[in-house]
Design a protein around this nucleic acid. Structure first.
Ligand SMILES: [Zn+2]
Length: 298
DNA sequence: CAACCATCCTGCGAGC
DNA sequence: TGCTCGCAGGATGGTT
């Protein structure tokens, strides 16, 4: 669920509040959601929180890491002990979660307690997500197959350096290498470009004016440039809005809503296109719904 | 090689 | 009311 903008948002928030805190307890409410021996992280400090693709990485003391994937419905909420309104929320904005009041609730699978009494809750309705204890070697292995990071200057894994950032020439090479694959599928392939999922692939292609089912090899140089620009525009706008995750909590905070309020096509089947008078269509591409405007996209 | 399928889970809304 | 079906922001491993 959460894609790059949502993961980036939660990572920025958590890095601020968790850096320097010591893990004093780990409560595992669902065994499938936590992989590893919990004693390996008890008493350890969190040095930093960052991400690579849609993976969240907690760097701990003495070469240990917590690797987290939110998958479809994962959500992280940090809450201070003294001021419950002082919180950081990110991940899935599912309605189910909004109906729950106190934490932990029925979808909380794991939570952490820190030395200052604050807590971090991992909620995950569908139990696809997980938290895994790894060392540096395992971390590297698990992340080794990931492709380019689409956005520059975000908080991805700095140690891997600038080589990770997607440039227009990289996009060209990818398209040349897989000319028969559909462009939406390429954009979502984590081994090629890391962090784009089902919302933003549709949004990017709407922005670029390209139909999601187009074979990569049929794209003109101009269209490829437009797609490249759209990747940057759509994702950076979503990051600015805090992803799609936090609208509910943002309303509580009196601030603005998330990206989905402004989505051009995603989950808007049958609704009016924002650029023309036509209606948004939905079509299965690679077993997932692709949304597009048949008039604005060619 | 690309497209399709099932799988891991839980819940919602539409239609009968 | 109760049932089935399709759907949901991910990723993997298998088969045509
Ligand atoms: Zn249109």
């Amino acid at each position: 669920m959460p894609e790059l903008p949502e993961v980036e948002t939660i990572v920025r928030g958590l890095d601020k509040v968790l850096s320097g805190k010591k893990i004093s307890a780990v409560k595992i409410l669902n065994k499938k959601s936590f992989l590893g021996e919990r004693s390996e992280i008890l008493g350890k400090k969190i040095i930093a929180v960052r991400r690579r693709a849609k993976y969240i990485i907690f760097e701990l003391e003495r070469g240990k890491y917590l690797l987290i994937h939110l998958k479809m419905t994962g959500q992280l909420i940090w809450q201070s002990q003294k001021i419950p309104n002082n919180k950081v929320v990110g991940g899935h904005p599912d309605e189910m979660y909004r109906r729950q009041d106190k934490l932990p609730h029925k979808y909380t699978r794991v939570y952490f307690e820190f030395d200052d009494g604050s807590r971090l809750f991992f909620n995950d309705l569908r139990v696809f997500g997980w938290i895994k204890i790894v060392d540096q070697g395992e971390l590297k292995t698990l992340l080794s197959d990931l492709g380019f990071e689409p956005l520059p200057y975000t908080k991805n894994d700095r140690k891997s350096g600038e080589l990770l950032i997607l440039g227009v020439s990289n996009l060209n090479s990818i398209i040349q290498k897989y000319p028969r694959r559909r462009i939406k599928d390429l954009l979502q392939d984590q081994k090629l470009i890391a962090g784009i999922g089902n919302i933003y692939s549709s949004e990017i292609l709407f922005c670029a004016g390209v139909l999601p089912g187009r074979a990569a090899g049929s794209l003109t140089a101009r269209e490829i440039r437009k797609i490249y620009q759209s990747i940057n525009r759509v994702l950076s706008k979503a990051v600015k809005l805090g992803g799609t995750s936090m609208s509910d909590y943002r309303k509580v905070d009196g601030s603005k809503g998330g990206y989905l309020d402004e989505a051009g096509v995603y989950a808007r089947e049958g609704e009016k296109c924002r650029k023309c008078a036509g209606k948004i269509k939905r079509k299965k591409i690679g077993q997932r719904s692709a949304y597009f405007c048949p008039h604005c996209q060619v």
